[in-house]
Simulated scan of single mutants.
Amino acid sequence: MAVVVPFEKDRASIEALVGATRADMDRVNAMILSRTGSEVTMIPEVANHLISSGGKRLRPMLTLATAALAGYQGEGHVKLAAAVEFMHTATLLHDDVVDESDMRRGRPAARMVWGNEASVLVGDFLLGQAFKMMVEVGSLRALDILSTAAAVIAEGEVMQLAAAKNTATTEDEYLAVIRGKTAELFAAACEVGPVIAGKPKAEQAAARAYGMNLGIAFQLVDDALDYGGKSQKLGKNTGDDFREGKITLPVVLAFRRGSEQERAFWKKVLVDGAIEEGDLETATGFMARHGTLADTIERARHYGDMAKDALALFPDSPMKDALVQAVDFCISRAH
């Protein structure tokens, strides 16, 4: 059965953010291409397979936007934005190996083309390049923020691994996972802009809060879309989380609210991995019965509102408006 995920009536757009950061993003993209070069042929092949596959590059755009919001006048934001994108790409390469994913952004995952070993090692290469660029910027604080983020992201991934197939996972425990594995990079990407601009700690903290809450909202929407979205807009196959036994918020809520019979179903498919034809439709039916997708989106809106509130510290400007619209876009995407 089809499940319709409720979104805002008028679809929000990210075009204001894209337009406001276009000139700097051109420089970031050029730097990304130059830094994937290697005499080891497989490295640029694997890296560019994912880098050129059509991602929105939201995280580096946020670094550029928050730097502009803070009035930064230097060149360091371009290298930091490229470093953020390399960190994100590395985590995708690693995640696809861990999750045994076949598809990424509508194309075969790198692991399906070059194998697991190459995907992991090229991800490591990109992390190394990211840290080189951070050092070149010369901001010890920015290096601290992004290197800490790398460790926190890894912790979040391990936490998710530990929570996989565990139907006893609580909502608070799940939120801790996504704060680490997804929202931390959004937070760090936004925080380094005011840091290199030399802004007061209050503005640095406000930018970080914007990124953290946006990242949580972004992941919650992804969780809902896995059961009620369209695969070409998700960047992966619909139902991947279900097939991989991932415990996401719609599952946590459905398990809590379900009958004993429904809980037995969740244990069968997620804990035992005994998925049969039609089980995904059964799962989405239970979610529709208990309103778990709608409630997941509602929670995403709550974190989106917190992200917008965090920007209140900054004076009104076109860039601030673009960042507000980016929140609405993240929540309404795939509508």
Rank of each mutant, 00 (worst) to 15 (best):
V40K: 06
T41G: 14
M42Y: 09
I43N: 00
P44F: 07
E45R: 01
V46F: 00
V46Y: 03
V46I: 04
A47F: 01
A47T: 00
A47S: 00
N48G: 02
N48E: 14
N48L: 14
H49M: 07
H49P: 03
L50P: 00
I51F: 10
I51R: 01
S52P: 00
G55R: 03
K56S: 00
P60K: 07
L62Y: 04
A65Q: 05
A65W: 03
A67I: 02
A68W: 07
A68H: 11
A70V: 03
G71A: 02
Y72A: 01
G74H: 12
V78P: 05
V78W: 10
K79P: 08
L80Y: 09
A81C: 02
A81V: 01
V84D: 04
E85W: 11
M87F: 11
H88I: 08
T91L: 13
D102T: 13
M103T: 12
R104T: 08
R105F: 09
M112T: 15
G115F: 12
N116T: 06
E117D: 15
E117L: 11
S119D: 00
S119N: 06
V122H: 04
F125H: 00
L126I: 11
L127W: 05
G128W: 05
A130D: 01
A130R: 04
K132N: 11
K132C: 11
V137K: 01
G138P: 03
G138V: 06
R141N: 09
D144C: 10
S147I: 07
A150G: 15
V152D: 09
V152H: 10
M159W: 11
L161C: 12
K165N: 12
K165F: 12
N166S: 13
T169R: 02
T170L: 11
L175D: 14
A176T: 09
T182C: 00
T182M: 03
A183C: 07
A187P: 07
